[in-house]
């Protein structure tokens, strides 16, 4: 059993114009076996939620709690959160020149598992994970995210999801900028992960397109730092037809 519980979360960010309140009381419970989609217009705070869960230093939690299986996530460092079972697939994965994908994956796997992966099966596992994300085995010799196309970056995130096997996956606009083939590869990766049964998925997206391939159990509409409405998969269909306008107007 894993439960990611977010309660009345308030988050600020420091900008040039002073401190800005982004999240204004978010409450959300995500259990294993569930896929939640968070949808909302630009600037509604979706990505802030993702990065706050992962512990990015740019965001300051001014109120509320996040727990994973009852343990305080906000007390953990960024790497402790990952070792506790949280994974964030980023919208803009960062380039690390000179560090090979192979070295990076092995170091991450060793950190998460607390021991080095078995040499004999590891290479096979890496190639399988890359292959499942439609990436060539030679990919592991390239520097992390350096010179990757937009699609390669996202597929590399999904390959990591498969290898690191977390409890909770947070996907921050992983669908943005993908063509239809890449979108299918990414969706299949997320579905494979979710099919393990004891996994939770928090899918953050601007568009309904990816929800044709990943079926959410719950849909939350995010507007102005709060959840404006919640429902099942049918809410996404409704959003596709009507857009975010009525929620945005209501929030003003």
């Amino acid at each position: 059993m894993s439960i990611l519980q977010i309660t009345d979360l308030h988050v600020t960010v420091d900008t040039d114009d002073g401190t800005k309140q982004i999240l204004k009381g978010v409450t959300l419970t995500i259990k294993d076996g569930e896929t939640h989609a968070i949808m909302g217009p630009n600037g509604s705070g979706k990505s802030t939620l993702a990065y706050t869960i992962a512990g990015h230093p740019k965001y300051t939690v001014t109120g509320g709690t996040i727990t994973l299986d009852g343990v305080d996530v906000l007390e953990m460092s960024v790497d402790e959160r990952a070792r506790a079972g949280l994974f964030l697939a980023m919208q803009y994965p960062v380039e690390i020149p000179g560090v090979s994908v192979a070295n990076f994956l092995r170091t991450a796997k060793t950190a998460i598992d607390g021991e080095a992966p078995k040499l004999r099966t590891w290479v096979k596992d890496v190639n399988a994970a890359l292959g499942a994300a439609d990436l060539d085995p030679t990919f592991s010799q390239r520097s992390v995210n350096e010179g990757f196309s937009g699609g390669e970056k996202k597929r590399h995130e999904i390959a990591q999801l498969g290898l690191l096997n977390p409890k909770v996956a947070v996907l921050d606009e992983t669908d943005s900028g993908l063509d239809i083939d890449a979108l299918k590869v990414v969706s299949e990766g997320v579905n494979r992960f979710a099919a393990n049964g004891d996994k939770a998925v928090l899918l953050i997206t601007h568009y309904t397109r990816i929800l044709r391939y990943i079926k959410p159990d719950f849909v939350h509409v995010f507007v102005n730092g709060r959840i404006a409405e919640q429902g099942g998969a049918e809410l996404a269909d409704q959003l596709e037809a009507t857009g975010y306008d009525k929620y945005v107007k209501a929030a003003v």
Partner: peptide, 25 residues
């Protein structure tokens, strides 16, 4: 760069080591 590596479970010191290695490699 450090955030990205640490978000994959890699400790801060190990992340720094990787970044410097990469820088020179």
């Amino acid at each position: 760069q450090l955030f990205y590596l640490r978000s994959r479970g890699i400790s801060e010191k190990e992340a720094q080591r990787l970044v410097v290695h990469g820088f020179f490699n």
